[in-house]
């Protein structure tokens, strides 16, 4: 999951960030979304045409129309599995935020922690989640915990690194100014380092949140009692390729929605950033 999902997430992040610098007007929104929309429609058209022309069995490759049709027919079951996934995503991502913030603040206040933790943070990202996840199930069972751990593991890193770098990017002169005012280390942090790091935090948040949903799906795929991940796994085993794809569409929609939400939160929290 990780390599491809990661690349897509990064591309999305960059595009969205670039256009974020302008105030979105209707024309701007159409101009931004329009090309992707056309591309998706053309792709769906080709797909539909190919499946019809080649007479493929839906177990192998269902047509887009069939995916929609069957997805709708099974909407209740899909929804019933979407809710647990959303819950797991939310809990996991909150855990990831707590972990990322705690580490970043600790590193900012205790210099030797930075040297001690940086290699560990990087090492945590080299763990093969695909091998670890089943072990987590063995250790922690089918409950919430192993899934929260997987999500936190795949999403805390960009958040922690974004914050650590954001704090450290504080202008030396700004630090001196605060010191000349008699500010303690804590007040330097509160008045300058923290607010100054928030724009980077939101960029990091966007990268993290695109991993969060796929992380949840993956964790459920390995073992769960409900959720989109286990739903996909079950449908795959009974050759309901169409329902697997329907769940994929729901997953993508969730990710994009959460991604867009970060912009809303950003505007609310740091309205001073970007435009006036």
């Amino acid at each position: 999951m990780s390599p491809r999902g990661g690349a897509v997430a990064r591309i999305r992040t960059h595009r969205a960030r670039d256009s974020h610098t302008r105030r979105p007007r209707l024309a701007g929104v159409v101009g931004r979304v329009g090309p992707s929309l056309v591309l998706v429609l053309v792709g769906l058209g080709v797909w539909q045409g190919y499946v019809t022309a080649a007479g493929l069995r839906p177990q192998v490759l269902p047509s887009p129309l069939r995916v929609v049709e069957q997805g709708w027919a099974f909407r209740e079951e899909i929804w019933a599995n979407t809710v647990p996934t959303l819950q797991v995503t939310a809990v996991g991502f909150v855990a990831s935020l707590v972990l990322g913030w705690t580490l970043a603040v600790a590193v900012d206040f205790v210099p030797w922690l930075r040297r001690a933790l940086t290699p560990l943070l990087v090492a945590s990202q080299t763990l093969p989640i695909i091998a670890i996840a089943p072990l987590l199930i063995i250790w922690f069972g089918f409950g919430l915990l192993p899934k929260v751990v997987v999500i936190a593991l795949v999403t805390f890193f960009p958040i922690a690194v974004g914050l650590i770098e954001g704090f450290a990017a504080t202008d030396r002169d700004a630090t001196n100014l605060l010191r000349s005012m008699g500010a303690s280390r804590w007040r330097q942090f509160r008045y300058v380092r923290l607010p100054g790091a928030l724009p980077r935090f939101f960029t990091a948040l966007r990268i993290g949140i695109t991993y969060a949903v796929t992380g949840a799906i993956f964790a459920e795929y390995v073992g769960a009692t409900a959720g989109l991940g286990i739903f996909m796994n079950l449908q795959k085993n009974s050759f309901r390729t169409d329902l697997v794809l329907a769940a994929v569409v729901v997953t993508a929609t969730l990710s994009v929605t959460l991604f867009a939400l970060t912009y809303v939160v950003e505007r609310l929290v740091i309205p001073w950033n970007g435009h006036g």
Binding site: D173, N176, G182, Y191
Partner: peptide, 26 residues
């Protein structure tokens, strides 16, 4: 009272709240 080369006015504070920073910090 120290004034550095850069103005170092912080974008997350209004002009008034930038000018009171030293007092608040104290």
């Amino acid at each position: 009272a120290y004034m550095p080369q850069q103005d170092l006015l912080f974008p997350w504070r209004t002009v008034l709240d930038n000018t009171t920073l030293g007092l608040e910090v104290a």
